[in-house]
Design a binder for these strands. Structure first.
Lengths: 221, 221, 221, 221
DNA sequence: GATGAATGAGGGTTCATTCAT
DNA sequence: TATGAATGAACCCTCATTCAT
């Protein structure tokens, strides 16, 4: 009589399964709402393994958000835009950012939970901080080139702009449930989602682009 | 030795103290992270009273968000803008919304937590839903009047615009900790905050206002 | 504006209402299962009054069973049978006992609960003990007279007989729910109840009455 | 200093120990009076294990009464009597039933508590219902054979008879404390107990057996 | 490496009881 | 006398974590 082989002893795969299950659970319930038991069950792994591999629930959460941010940044692929002309580059950047959120929806509740915990885990991760190092430069590069070409206004703060782009791209996702109730509109149905992407692109472009009036004022200075 | 000062028997006041303490705790730790014990201690109330007055932790949370949204809406005072000319009105609306969040900072983590729970409590509250009824109309009123006067573009979706305004006004607050780490910038220091307000006002105005180019295109149609 | 008068301040009546409510609750849920709150609500009385009048939940329970036993004994009216001839007297006694239980159904779960508590309250009540003093004498009187007349067997233990009568009259009531499940028969429907009364009367009579065989054996001794 | 001896990790044994402790506690205090903490302590088990194995206090109670009824039925061994002649068989049946209660004394308060809860747990247990399926048949078998042989009366209701037997065998046990107080007699001392067994046997026999007078009446019909 | 069993520290909730008016 | 407010001690149950095999 052979015992049913649960799974080959493959620590890498087990670790991966746990991470996936944890990502789903933490995204669904938050750090405090998620249950280690449930994560183990979802991963079809023994609960003890979580502690072997990740040390603690907090350690697991840390690993989860590290990976989630990593994947977000990969999906964002912002370096692409340095090769594009400023206007197209800015649009591309916005679209890439928007898509990055859509394709990695877990990141949004994970970030919510992490902020409730005052970025305790994020702060500990040098890896993640480095991941975001190039980002401001990318924006600055676009803005600078755009200003030089006279297509963008010259006095735009890249941090403010980036924060705004991320706000516009993610707030309606993270707050979709309350917004649905308050505005009586489902924001995440496909049609609305497409409309929103265009809206954001439009908003950003109108913000960065120089108008005739701007140009006039600029000249007078 | 002095006896500890007991609270006078005043149910209204006790209820209020519990609500205040719960608001603080839920805002700080979320629904799942908050502890009823801690709330009671903070309110200097007996734990049982929470159950007498609010029925359950969930009931308390419901009461907390109901009041928080109520106060947010009161602070927003959006009806004011219906008396203003469109351009000034839109600016006022943005500033009021921004200030409403700054003056009621608890609403943001509370909303985060509520969204993690898929707006379960919000959905149950007819009171809150009604509170937001006038809002889309306010925006529509501004946009319509602005378009009639030729100062705003005519084809702006009021829902998208409102969502964007709220996004811009609140995302950097709710995500201030992660943004600080990732962007290496404190976003909530007073200077930055003021700068952000102007940035948002600017962004919204540039979005809604008709440019010469818009006007030209419009005419040609 | 006149405040609605809840109830005239009539301590006797209030006490009575509390006692009635408590009897119902204790009968339904037992001493441990009953809730003081629920009793107060049922009596439309303030909870504190229970403590004013009865001292504690235990004191209330004590009062409840005292009254319940008192009423049971009143309904039993066993003294009647001393005037009847033995055979008719015994039948009457059984029927009175059976009816006493049917007419005071609370006594049965109350006694159950009291026995779970090892008759703690009963033991404290001299009043109740005295109430039952005449009972064995009644049985003995019947048995003695019956034996003298040659209609009853002479060697019947009155205590055993009384215990048996009470057993037969009350067990199927106190255990009606489990018996219904186990025997797949509803024992408390009216038809069954009447049948059971006759069954018990029959059983007791056959037990006490002298048969020809008894008489023969008796003579030979 | 010796370390406290921990139990070896044996879930079957632990489960058994919990069940035994719970049986004792529930029998002693009833479902509502028993404390999960106390059960755990008595079983020298961690409280959590109770929930691991039995789900809830109610689930534990259910398991307890299921086992108690099972053991009662095993002790009753009523199938034996189908091989005996009716008179001896009936006596044996009564004695087995009586002994089953004496040897499984927990069943009586457990049944009391269960009836207070309206057989809620019993009703859920198909296993127990099936356990009692053969019982009425056993009685019917005895009565039928006895009637055929002319030793028993022919018109006896087996359900009434069984209920009476169980009443006579268990009531004085379940109500021993109140009866002791009311009748000023200890019913459970060994001597009394033996006397009661004979009393019950006698009572049942006199009830089922045909007397000369019965025979005469029967013939005349 | 992997697992089922076990643990202790709370978590939310309830309850009998008392206080203050 | 009567009441609503308040209390503290549990109570059932859950959770993150560790042990023993």
């Amino acid at each position: 009589m052979t015992k049913p082989v649960k799974r080959p002893r493959n620590s890498a795969q087990t670790k991966e399964l746990i991470l996936a299950a944890a990502t789903a659970e933490f995204a669904r319930r938050g750090l405090d709402g998620a249950r280690v038991d449930q994560i183990a069950k979802r991963a079809r792994a023994n609960k003890t393994l979580i502690y072997t591999y990740f040390g603690s629930k907090d350690g697991l959460f840390q690993a989860v958000i590290e990976r989630a941010y990593q994947e977000l940044r990969q999906a964002q692929r912002d370096l692409i835009v340095r090769h594009l002309d400023p206007d197209a580059g800015m649009e591309k950047f916005v679209r890439l950012t928007y898509r990055a959120f859509l394709d990695n929806p877990e990141i949004i509740p994970l970030a919510s939970s992490e902020n409730l915990h005052r970025a305790r885990h994020l702060g500990k991760s040098k890896k993640i901080r480095e991941l975001f190092d190039p980002l401001p430069e990318t924006i600055t590069d676009l803005l600078t080139r755009g200003a030089q070409e006279g297509v963008f206004r010259p006095d735009i703060d890249p941090i403010d702009l980036y924060v705004s782009i991320v706000s516009l791209c993610s707030y309606h996702i993270s707050n979709q449930y309350s917004l649905s109730v308050l505005l009586k509109t489902k924001l995440m149905i496909p049609e609305r989602r497409r409309q929103r992407e265009e809206h954001i692109v439009d908003m950003v472009r109108r913000f960065v682009c120089q108008t005739d009036r701007d140009a006039a004022r600029q000249k007078s200075v």
